[in-house]
């Protein structure tokens, strides 16, 4: 299959069932390099299932997806991370008993290689790599705007900082696509505004962003294009203005028939 060179992620007729429940059916969409792409839809629409497929936590039943011109239809999580897809979670999943700094350093695991031999002998290359990892981790902490001491355990960070730490950990894997599952959930207006600034900075840094969000104002104000899922089907796709006025979207959100 040929696709335009600026397509980073292409989903073709993706389907996933859990027993009798159809979580996703026939979802086709593509995400271009450098855009912020939003995914919205009512609860249970299949948004998180889609994320789990993209990151290898689930395998899709039908269809296929390509990323950066390679097919990754049935790939374990670490291969997809290697390919350049990183994500955060709707319910925060940090390594709670490791420090903020260490959480980011684990994120660097993929891009470093010192094994048991280096750990035991601590030869020059291993120490240099460790120093780089540490330096990069400090940079990312600053980049996402975490101000508390770097050695604070992740579980003791404030809620907003935990969300930022998850983003920093995902960035540490040097992704091409950053997939964020409801990053603004539970945030107040100020926190949401600074999150928006952070995501714009990340995109300006050359990373494509895929965003699931319930905060419709944030999505429509931030994204270049938006897709709407309902009951596992894509019911609309377009620029924010088109989505705002799409009768199918209004029906899905408000219930009943749009008049």
């Amino acid at each position: 299959m040929t696709q335009p060179a600026d397509t980073l992620l292409q989903l073709s007729a993706v389907g996933k069932r859990f027993g009798g429940l159809v979580a996703l059916s026939d979802v086709t969409l593509h995400i271009k390099r450098g855009e912020i792409y939003g995914l919205i839809g009512p609860n249970g629409a299949g948004k998180t299932t889609l994320f789990n497929i993209l990151t290898g936590l689930y395998f899709l039943d039908t269809g296929s997806f390509t990323f950066d011109n390679n097919s990754y239809t049935r790939c374990p999580p670490h291969r997809l991370a290697q390919a350049g897809i990183a994500r955060t979670f709707q319910n925060i999943r940090l390594f709670a008993n490791m420090s903020a700094l260490e959480n980011i350093m684990v994120g660097r695991h993929l891009r470093t290689r010192t094994g048991i031999w280096g750990a035991l002998t601590r030869h020059a290359a291993a120490r240099a790599e460790e120093a780089t990892t540490l330096q990069r981790a400090y940079e990312l902490l600053r980049y996402v705007g975490i101000s508390c001491p770097a050695h604070t355990l992740a579980k003791n960070l404030s809620y907003g900082e935990q969300r930022r730490l998850e983003i920093a950990r995902a960035l540490a894997t040097e992704p091409k696509l950053l997939a964020l599952d409801e990053p603004a959930a539970g945030m107040n207006a100020t926190e949401t505004a600074s999150l928006k600034t952070l995501l714009q900075a990340i995109r300006a840094g050359g990373i494509t962003v895929l965003l699931i969000e319930h905060d419709v104002k944030l999505i429509l104000g931030l994204c270049d294009r938006v897709a709407v899922l309902d009951y596992g089907k894509k019911i609309a796709e377009g620029v924010p203005d088109e989505i705002r006025n799409d009768p199918a979207v209004i029906t899905a959100y408000m219930g009943g028939h749009a008049t």
Partner: peptide, 13 residues
């Protein structure tokens, strides 16, 4: 990291 959460550790490679 594996001790805390194997699935997430795998996502980090």
């Amino acid at each position: 990291a594996v001790a805390e959460n194997p699935a997430i550790a795998a996502l980090m490679g």
